[in-house]
Design a protein around this nucleic acid. Structure first.
Ligand SMILES: NC(=O)c1ccc[n+]([C@@H]2O[C@H](COP(=O)([O-])OP(=O)(O)OC[C@H]3O[C@@H](n4cnc5c(N)ncnc54)[C@H](O)[C@@H]3O)[C@@H](O)[C@H]2O)c1
Ligand SMILES: NC(=O)c1ccc[n+]([C@@H]2O[C@H](COP(=O)([O-])OP(=O)(O)OC[C@H]3O[C@@H](n4cnc5c(N)ncnc54)[C@H](O)[C@@H]3O)[C@@H](O)[C@H]2O)c1
Lengths: 221, 221
DNA sequence: CACCAATCGTGTAACATTTCACAATTGTAG
DNA sequence: CTACAATTGTGAAATGTTACACGATTGGTG
C-alpha cells in the first residue's frame, strides 16, 4: 500500500507526467498539421483517420495519444479542429510566448534569428550572444547581438528557460554548461556533438549530416 | 515450409535488412562520437562503456546494436576506434561521397550550401535550385544556382538520390513530388509540413519549432 | 604460466509501444 | 422516430525495444 501511495504521489496539477516522451514528440506534429488545416479553413472538424493519412501514422495511434490527455473527440464526428489546437497548445504549454536565447551568430544563427517561423508557434528569439567583436553590437532580425560574457547575467535576470546553440562543436559543451548554470532547462543544439547536461535539462539535436547518414543505409549502390 | 522460404527470400548481399530503423538512427551518433575520438587522437581503442557514457546510452545498447552487424570488438580490450569507424561507414554506405541536391536558396539554403560540415562525413552539396530570377545564376559556396525548371533533367541525368528541401511550406509537397519523380530516394526537408512520398522513399524532417515544442511540455510555469 | 580485471556478445526477462477490434455514441437521412 | 454510417476511446493482444546478467575471451601482471 505504501507502493500505491508513492506511485500516486508525483503528478502535476493538470495531467500526470508519466506520459511517454515518444507521445510528447508526436504532439507538435499533430499540432502543426491541425494549424495548417485552420489556415486552409475549409472545414471545422477532422477525424483521426484524416489526420493520420496526412501524417502517415495510424488513426489508432492518434486516438490513443490524445486519449492520454482527455476526451477531445466526439463519436461519429471526430475532432473540432480549433478546439484540438487549443488543447494541444495548452498541453504543450504553448498558450504563451516563450522567449528564447540564441548563442552563436554565424551563418546559422543569422538564418534562425531572421526566421519568421517562430512567431505564432509559441516562441520569440529575444537575445543573441556571440564572442566575435565584429559581430557583437550588430543587429540581426532587429535584435542586438550581445557579448557572450554577459550571458549568465542576462539569462538569470530574465529567467530564460530555452536556448538555441549554434556555435562550433568545440565550444558547445562549455556553453551548454554555462546555459544550464544560468537556469536554462531546454537546449536545441546544432553543433554536431553530443553534450552532457544534468538530469532535468532537455536537449534536442539538429545535425543534418546525421539525418542524411540515417537514410543512406537504405539506398542502393 | 513455403513460409520459411519466403522469409529467407529477401536479404541484401551484405547484411539482412531487417535491422530496426531505430538502431540505424543511432549509428550516425556512434560514428560522430568515434570520429571525434579519432580527432582527439589520445587513444586507439574504446569500450562500449566509455562510448555510452559520452552519449548517454547504456553500454549494453551499444553492444547489442553493433552485434547486429558483426563482431567488431574484442573481449577485455573493447573496440579499435579506427576499425569501428570504418565498419560504421561501410554499413551506412558512407565509404563514398554522396552528391546532394539542394532546393531553395534562401536564408537556410545559403547557410547549408556554405556549411563545411558535409565534407568528411560523406556528402557534398553538388547542385542548388531556386525559382527566383534574382537568385538563379548567383554562386553560393562555389556552386551556381540553377533554375528549378531544370531540376528533373539534371537529377535524372546525374542519378541524384539525395536532396535537401529548403523552400516555403506551400511549395514543399510539389517539389518533393518532383524530386521523387526524378529518382531521389532520400529527402531532408526543413519546411514545417509533413510531406507524403511513395513507399521506398525516406524522409527526414528538421523543424526547430517542433523540437522546441517537444521540450516546453517539461518546463514549469 | 596462473591469475585477474576488463570487456564483449548474447539469451532471456522486463518493459514499452503499437495495433487490433469492438462497444458506445453521434448526427443524419429517410 | 428508426436505421445507419461514421467515428471515438480503450482493453487486450501483438509486436518491438531495452536492460540484465553471465559465460567466454583477452591481455597484462606477478
Ligand atoms: N551552417 C549550417 O548550415 C549548419 C548546419 C547544421 C549545423 N551547423 C552547426 O551549427 C554551428 C554553427 O554553424 P555556423 O555555420 O553558423 O558556424 P559559424 O562559424 O558561421 O558561426 C559560429 C558562431 O559562433 C561564434 N562563437 C564561437 N565561439 C563562441 C563562444 N565561445 N561563445 C559565443 N560565440 C561563439 C562565432 O563567433 C560565430 O559567429 C556549428 O556547430 C555547425 O557545425 C551549421
Ligand atoms: N531560416 C531558418 O532558419 C529556417 C529554419 C527552419 C526551417 N526553415 C524553413 O526552411 C524553408 C526555407 O526557409 P528560408 O528561411 O530559407 O526561406 P526563404 O524565403 O529565405 O527561402 C526560400 C527560398 O525558396 C525559393 N523558392 C520558393 N518557391 C520555390 C519553388 N517553387 N521552387 C524553387 N525554389 C523556390 C525562394 O526563391 C527562396 O529563395 C522554409 O520552409 C522555412 O520554414 C527555415
Amino acid at each position: 500500500m505504501t507502493e500505491i501511495e508513492e506511485s500516486i504521489a508525483e503528478e502535476s496539477p493538470d495531467v500526470a507526467h508519466d506520459i511517454p516522451d515518444i507521445v510528447i514528440g508526436r504532439l507538435p506534429i499533430y499540432l502543426r498539421a491541425l494549424m495548417r488545416m485552420v489556415e486552409e479553413g475549409d472545414k471545422v472538424t477532422t477525424s483521426s483517420q484524416e489526420l493520420g493519412d496526412r501524417l502517415g501514422v495510424s488513426s489508432a495511434q492518434i486516438r490513443k495519444d490524445l486519449s492520454l490527455f482527455g476526451d477531445f473527440g466526439k463519436q461519429g464526428t471526430g475532432y473540432h479542429i480549433n478546439y484540438l489546437v487549443q488543447q494541444l497548445q495548452r498541453i504543450l504549454k504553448l498558450d504563451r510566448e516563450w522567449p528564447v536565447a540564441m548563442v552563436g551568430a554565424g551563418f546559422l544563427g543569422h538564418a534562425l534569428a531572421n526566421y519568421g517561423g517562430f512567431k505564432n508557434r509559441g516562441f520569440r528569439v529575444a537575445w543573441i550572444f556571440d564572442n566575435d567583436p565584429e559581430t557583437v553590437g550588430q543587429k540581426i532580425g532587429g535584435i542586438m547581438v550581445r557579448h557572450v560574457d554577459g550571458l549568465e547575467r542576462v539569462l538569470r535576470r530574465e529567467k530564460v528557460q530555452i536556448a538555441m546553440l549554434a556555435v562550433p562543436a568545440t565550444a558547445a559543451q562549455e556553453l551548454a554548461d554555462r546555459l544550464v548554470a544560468s537556469g536554462v532547462r531546454a537546449i536545441l543544439t546544432y553543433a554536431p556533438i553530443s553534450i552532457n547536461v544534468p538530469e532535468g535539462v532537455k536537449v534536442q539535436y539538429s545535425d543534418p549530416v546525421a539525418q542524411l547518414q540515417r537514410m543512406t543505409f537504405y539506398l542502393d549502390v
